[in-house]
């Protein structure tokens, strides 16, 4: 292709990008729908197998540490609060406070992952992992329970990591004054994502830890 010389069209690609906060939030909500359906598939399978193997599921659920699960729930709920606070702080033009709340969020996310690491580690230590020695002696319901447990909490953990990366990126943008009190849609979007991660956990927690 040859390039005609027409000086009026310089940087023409820039016109394609325009700011539309509402549109950007809408895109984020659609993306959250897809995430819910992704986990929705797993929740359907959980429901199906819970119905088929209710005894096995009840027996396996006693293996989980309710205290650790509760602590993690509290941690995640707190982190959701701090994300909201950071948005409010930024809206009120308090950059430092906003960053502080995001730091708290990141810290909560990390503590959650560390707790999860110890939980999984303990299971592995007892031989409870796919094809592990302890699991092979358990009933089919228990095998499926732990199969789902590892997949669902694993996928959820992965989402925490992604959420932390989003928040880390947003924090840099706030520091560089790209995200400001009048242009905070990216912060709000990563906040939405973080709430989603939180909500999924709110369903995972009773399904795996509390129903015996």
């Amino acid at each position: 292709m040859s390039y005609n010389s027409d000086s009026s069209v310089q940087e023409i690609q820039e016109v394609h990008i325009h700011r539309d906060d509402f549109g950007s939030k809408m895109g984020m909500w659609l993306f959250l729908f897809t995430e819910i359906l992704l986990f929705g598939g797993l929740f359907i399978m959980y429901a199906g197998y819970r119905y088929l193997y209710s005894d096995g599921f009840a027996a396996a659920a006693t293996e989980l540490d309710v205290l650790l699960g509760t602590i993690n729930t509290v941690i995640l709920l707190t982190s959701s609060l701090t994300v909201v606070l950071s948005i409010v702080a930024l809206q009120k033009n308090n950059k430092q406070l906003s960053l502080f709340f995001l730091w708290v969020t990141v810290l909560c996310g990390l503590i959650f992952l560390v707790n999860k690491y110890f939980e999984w580690g303990a299971k592995f230590h007892h031989g409870i992992y796919p094809k592990g020695p302890a699991l092979q002696n358990m009933s089919e319901g228990e095998v499926l329970y732990f199969g789902l447990y590892f997949v669902m909490t694993g996928l959820h953990g992965l989402h925490i990591v992604v959420g932390l990366i989003f928040i880390g990126y947003v924090m840099r943008q706030i520091q560089k004054d790209v995200i400001t009190s009048v242009n905070f849609q990216k912060l709000e979007n990563s906040g939405l994502y973080w709430h989603l991660v939180d909500i999924i956990w709110i369903f995972l927690f009773p399904l795996f830890y509390l129903i015996h």
Binding site: L38, G41, L52, P130, S139, V151
Partner: peptide
């Protein structure tokens, strides 16, 4: 997204044998 998670489960099933789709382990 529903096929997304289903396909991921096939991969996990092949890699680790989690049992969700494997009739030998109780899966359906």
């Amino acid at each position: 997204p529903v096929i997304g998670i289903t396909l991921i489960l096939i991969i996990l099933e092949r890699a680790f044998g989690i049992g969700i789709f494997d009739p030998a382990l109780g899966g359906d």
